[in-house]
Nucleic acid binder design. Sequence first.
DNA 1: GTACTGGTAGC
DNA 2: GCTACC
DNA 3: GTAC
Length: 359
Amino acid sequence: MELTHLDQIKEILETGELRRIEFEKTEDIEIINLFQGIYGVAYAWYAAGCRTLDDIRNKKAGIKVSEVQEIGLQHYDDINTRMPREEAHEIFVAIKETALSLDPKLFIEIMGSYRRGKSTCGDIDILITRSTEDGKTHEGILPTLLNMLQTMGIIHEHLSLPDLSVDPLEAVYRGLCVRPLREGEGPESKRLRRRIDFLTVPWINRGAALIYYTGDDIFNRSLRLKANKMGYSLNQKGLSAGVVRSPTRYTVKLCDGHMIASETEEEIFRILGVYSAAFHQVSADYECSRPSKVCLGKNLTNGYGPSKWSMLCLPVYPHGLLALGLRKLGAPATPQGRVKAIQAPSLNIVYTLPTLYKR
DNA sequence: GTACTGGTAGC
DNA sequence: GCTACC
DNA sequence: GTAC
Ligand SMILES: [Mn+2]
């Protein structure tokens, strides 16, 4: 008998894993995943006929490789090796100390997989903001901090620099770093390059930024989908009501609406009805920790078009639902083309926030 | 039978 | 429009 | 496909 998605979810919740797991191993996905480890282009290179990293290094098919992509190629193995949680911690401690030396009132947190409690981290994500109660802000901090970290030999290559001309309080940085030297270590000691990202936001947006930057990606999509169904819109700045979108071009906003929550995670979760053991006493059929992805492969049949789908992941989510990542076969094997969210509200699943969320 | 599918930034 | 972030 |  065929297992339904609901059966599979229950099995995962009850056993922690799903038997009969089959990874999606098709040539295009494998190669595009390889190329996505570079930074910058993946599907386009596959479409141009490249199949190996050397094809790209040799500029096969006349492809153009930017400066940033050359950096990605050069450090390919380093940046595609996950670091132990402890190394992320070491790097963050050094950065936090440097940042606080510039302004002791900065709010600086390590986000992403570290904040989700993972034992290894693919990169380091750092959120910076600052209380405005004394009339000051974190304006100008990030460029100064980046310069200092470069001088200290922590930050090495830049991949993407912030554009501060729109709002100097909002900045996104992407680059490569190494951990600080340990006691007794000389500069010759081998340290792997690590991907590092910084995000700065206005103080008022910190709650929404915490949610966004903690992730994971599917959790964010899932939460934003729920917000939409409730007539709201959620982004990294806040939760808004009254957003009106163009029916033809969905991303075009006809009306921005007004922000109803942004300063704390709790307020946003509360409005969205996402109860967490950290904030509320709740009863539920299941409790689960922040989503863990389970990869599996399965062909599904449906009513429209090419009828085969492959299921990529099955994370378990809060607000009594789950999301499945699906790719329609024949669709471009980009992350965008690959993922589709489906919900199962009949399962009453409670999402337990990591202890980091408590107060 | 119909509705569902994140939102934004940089280039 | 593509690639990136979560 | 799954939810309603
Ligand atoms: Mn990151």
